[in-house]
Amino acid sequence: MQSFEYASPTTLQEALSLLSTQWGEVDILAGGTDLLALMKDYIHTPKRVVNIKGIKELGGIQQTSAGLRIGAIVTIRELLENELVQKEYPALIQAARGIRGMQLRNMGTIGGDLCQRPRCWYFRNGFGLLALKDGKSLIPDGENRYHAIFPQGQAYFVSASSFGPPLIALGARVKLASTGGTRELPVEQFFVAPQREGEREIALKPNEILTEILVPPAKGVRNATYEIRPDEGVNWPLVTASVALRMEGNRVASARIVMGHVGPTPVQAVKAAAWLKGKQITEAVAEEAGRRAVEGAKPLSQNGYKVQLAQVAVKRALLAAVAK
C-alpha cells in the first residue's frame, strides 16, 4: 500500500471539501472491504483517503413519502435486519443474503457495494479495467469464463454490485453530492460502461459522494432476487436476476427484469419485461421470459454457460416473486 494522508470528517461538507476533481488522487473509505485490497495491490494509489463512516447524515434507513431512504454507509447487516426493508423489499434482502460471511456483512456498506470496482481478474492483476493490449482487449481471447455475455464495446468485465440489479428493478435513485450541490440519478444511469482505460464504471464524479439511495414504495410490487452461486462460500455469484412486478390481480401490469454479473453494468431485459405485461406468472411464462431476457447475448469463448444461467435466474426470480 502506498502511503496516504487520511481524514475522517464528521460532516458531508467537510468530506466533500477534501475530494479531488481527478480520479486517482483521493479515495473514499467506507467498509474498506474492497478499497484496502485495491490499495494493497497498487490498483489504487490514492494520495488521500477520506473515511466517511463518521458522517452521521450518511447513515440510517428511513421511510419517507417518496419511499425508503437508505444512507450510503448503511451496512449490509443493518439492511438485512431492517424491518422496513424486510417488509417490502425481498429483492434487496435476498441480494444482501448473497453477501456471505459475518465480517463482510458487518463491514460492507450499500454505497460501497454500488461503488466497488469490478472483480475482473485482468483488472485485479494490473492489466487495466479494459485489459487493453495494443488497443485491443485481452479478454475475448483470454480467460473469460466469468466475463460478460452482454459486453459493451471494449468493456467485457462484469459489474460486481449485488444491489445494482434489485435497485434498478425497484426503480431506485441515487443521490450524489458535491460542493456544488446534489444531483439524483436513476440507479440504471449510475452504472456506465467505460470505453477508454482510466474511465470509471460508475457515473459518480471524483468530487462527488454517493450519499443515499431512494427506493420507491413497493407495496403491491412483487419483487425478488435470485442468485446462482458457484458454491456456498464468500464468492461473487455467477449470475443474478432481480425482478419487480406491479400486479393487477394475478396479472402483470408492468415489470422490470435486471440481470447481474452478465455485463459491465446490470443488464435490463426490457423486451422480456414488456412481454410479461398482462400475463400470469406461470412456470412456462417465467421460462419464456428467461429465454427472451437472454436474447442478444454475445457470449465469449468460455462463458456460454452464463446465458443459460441468466435464463434460469430470471425464471426463478419471477417464480420467487410471485410465490407466497
Binding site: A7, L18, S20
Partner: peptide, 27 residues
Amino acid sequence: GALQAGLFPLTLDAAQSAAKVVGPGPV
C-alpha cells in the same frame, strides 16, 4: 501529522479542512 502539502500536487485542495487531515507520516 498535519498535511505535508509539499508532497502532493496542488490538485488536492484541502485548505478548509487542513487541520483534520493527518499523515502520510506516522500518527
